[in-house]
Nucleic acid binder design. Sequence first.
DNA 1: CAATAATTCTAATACCAATTAGAATCTAAC
DNA 2: GTTAGATTCTAATTGGTATTAGAATTATTG
Lengths: 176, 176
Amino acid sequence: MFSRQGYQSTSLKEIAAAADMKAGSLYYHFASKEALMAEVLDRSIQFISDTVAEEIEELEENYTFESGLRAFIKGHLSAILKHPDYTTTTIRNNGQIPKAVQVIAHTKREHYEKQWRQLMVLGRQESFIRPDLDEQLFRLMVLGSLNWSSVWYNPKGQSIDSLVKHFTQVFLNGCR
Amino acid sequence: MFSRQGYQSTSLKEIAAAADMKAGSLYYHFASKEALMAEVLDRSIQFISDTVAEEIEELEENYTFESGLRAFIKGHLSAILKHPDYTTTTIRNNGQIPKAVQVIAHTKREHYEKQWRQLMVLGRQESFIRPDLDEQLFRLMVLGSLNWSSVWYNPKGQSIDSLVKHFTQVFLNGCR
DNA sequence: CAATAATTCTAATACCAATTAGAATCTAAC
DNA sequence: GTTAGATTCTAATTGGTATTAGAATTATTG
């Protein structure tokens, strides 16, 4: 509900109703609305991170930038598009969440982004990424494209695998 | 304020205060909070559209896909990053705006996207875009990257011109 | 200056939000 | 079957919200 309507537009009454409860009962399980949102955000990022990790584990120990990027894209995109309820929460609610909650989520988000940064370092080492291209800017381009897909994605359209293929090809060619 | 805090989190009291007024006085100028938001959204999209149009007019009559894409990227990116107050409104507030308002904005947004689609058709005609790449998907990748820049952009960092250069290079290489 | 129109303010409206305390109920263990 | 613990509900509190009607003020025009 947070992902569809945003934090402020979702009332505890609605949330409770969806769980067959009354609003007040939520306070047995969560200290506040903020605490509830914090947990949703936390799980959201964790889920994306885990999905990517699974893809990476399927590679050989010393994987190349090319196969690494493919795995990252597949993991991130699958997570976002298969569970938009969780993941879109992270993406949509960028400015409008109380700062206390954002701070909590920030740690986990940082950890996930660190893995992306390491991948870019690999691309640099392999000289796969063109020397005059800022690899951190490149990372932001890729993540932007991927995250934005949650806005336009239609499950009835192209398959996720097909999307992964196109994304990978564009960005592998793009950074060379 | 809508762009920073979101629609629901911005109260008429705050808006009025920023205009040196009391909340009630706003109703002389706008029929409702929704009507106010509708106008903001409308101007937001119009501004992006206009900025791109300016870039296009600087080209020769029969411009190529390559120079066209460069102009589109420059226009869109400049608009977003120079006036985040207007443009981020369109980007952030995707689900959380009353539907009545979204309908109003949809027409103008469609008109703008149509121009992007035409550019992609040009890329197809020139065979600049690789045959096995869906040009509409490519368009969504580019727009995703560009729009997402409003999330991470830091005015103290790289110049907008530099960003335009990098974006253009990545996506021109990417679609070939 | 008078009078008309354009703005803004005040104060009240009705409504919905998050939160809380305590009573009521349900569940599980002995 | 009784008791203790876990869970939910009820009902009230407090405070904010958009909106409105009408009075007060300011600006413009003849």
